[in-house]
């Protein structure tokens, strides 16, 4: 790079030349671009904002169609009502239980399998990988799964929710490519010291993989936390319902009320449930919102790791 005139201005992070900064066209573009992005961000944020506003609003204001981004008739009554509902806390507890147990099982299966298939010398390795990858593109479908879970006697038990999702092939491939990149010499040294594969895995490989393990835990926890359909399929007893299913029933019930009362210009019951829905939704998102800022980076790195081997 001899001539300074032709050297593009390079952004330190992206390494992309941006051209001369002082040209009017470029400045115009920058502002336009920023405005578009601000607009996109606001559009993405808006549903959250209005949800929050509704959760603090009075039922009358929602019924009158006054609530958008700002609470109208501010009150905490709805939060008190929801927090006083035993079914809410039962389902919250269930969700925590299913998430913890499910994630634990999933991590056990994923890490052990990923470690085994990350060893290039393992005989039958390609077959093992093939068996796993094939399930990404072809699955049994709802009906045979339902028949299987029923015949295993898992209906109305925690296992119906926890076991079927306990191995995500995407996560498996992410872990595998991470393990493959651990320097071989470390393991070879341990082998010379007489450690078996299992000890190498637990004492050397896992401690080196804290970041990816954390990412996988997050992926699985979010999946279990958000799952409602499995519960919808396999659970009939209220006291086993996870939060997501409790919420779904709340919403589904509310829509029928809204539909019925549409002609009658909206009764109070529909508006109250709009309140309660909003609060329950906020409380269901809350844990994810609380950890999100701290873990977002890990999520992103997990996706990128997965794309390496795709």
């Amino acid at each position: 790079m001899v001539s300074t005139d032709l050297t593009p201005v390079v952004d330190e992070r992206a390494g992309v030349p941006v051209g001369p900064r002082d040209s009017t066209g470029y400045r115009l573009f920058t502002w336009l671009n920023a405005s578009v992005l601000v607009l996109v961000t606001l559009l993405i944020l808006y549903p959250f904002v209005t949800l929050l506003a509704q959760s603090f609003s009075s039922s009358g204001a929602i019924k009158a169609g006054l609530v958008n981004a700002v609470p109208v008739g501010f009150n905490l009554e709805t939060y008190r009502v929801v927090a006083g509902d035993d079914r809410f806390w039962t389902s919250y507890g269930n969700t925590v239980l299913y998430t913890v147990v499910g994630t634990a099982i999933a991590m056990l299966l994923t890490t052990t399998f990923a470690y085994a298939i990350s060893k290039p010398h393992l005989r039958g390795r390609n077959a093992l990988i093939g068996i796993a990858v094939f399930t990404m593109f072809f699955n049994g479908g709802i009906i045979p799964n339902y028949v299987l879970i029923s015949s295993l006697g898992m209906k109305n038990t925690m296992w119906a929710l926890v076991l079927p999702g306990a191995l995500s092939v995407f996560n498996l491939l992410v872990m595998k490519s991470f393990f493959e990149n651990i320097p071989r010499e470390l393991e070879e040294a341990a082998q010379i010291d007489g450690l078996g594969w299992f000890s190498i895995f637990t004492r050397i490989v896992l401690p080196l993989s804290k970041a990816v393990v954390a990412t996988m835990i997050l992926f699985y926890s979010v999946a279990y936390w958000n799952d409602w359909f499995t519960a919808f399929l396999y659970l009939d007893e209220d006291n086993l319902f996870p939060l997501s299913l409790f919420l779904r029933n709340l919403i589904a019930g509310a829509t029928t009320t809204t539909a019925a009362s549409a002609a009658a210009a909206g009764t109070t019951s529909a508006a109250i449930s709009a309140n309660i829905q909003a609060v329950t939704m906020i409380l269901a998102i809350l844990p994810i919102l609380c950890v999100y800022p701290f873990v977002q980076r890990h999520f992103v790195s997990g996706v990128m790791l997965g794309s390496v081997k795709g």
Binding site: L109, I131, G140, G141, P144, V147, L148
Partner: peptide, 12 residues
């Protein structure tokens, strides 16, 4: 796990 929860339903 894969055999029971993935391949058995396929055969199912």
């Amino acid at each position: 796990f894969l055999l029971v929860f993935r391949y058995l339903p396929m055969v199912g």
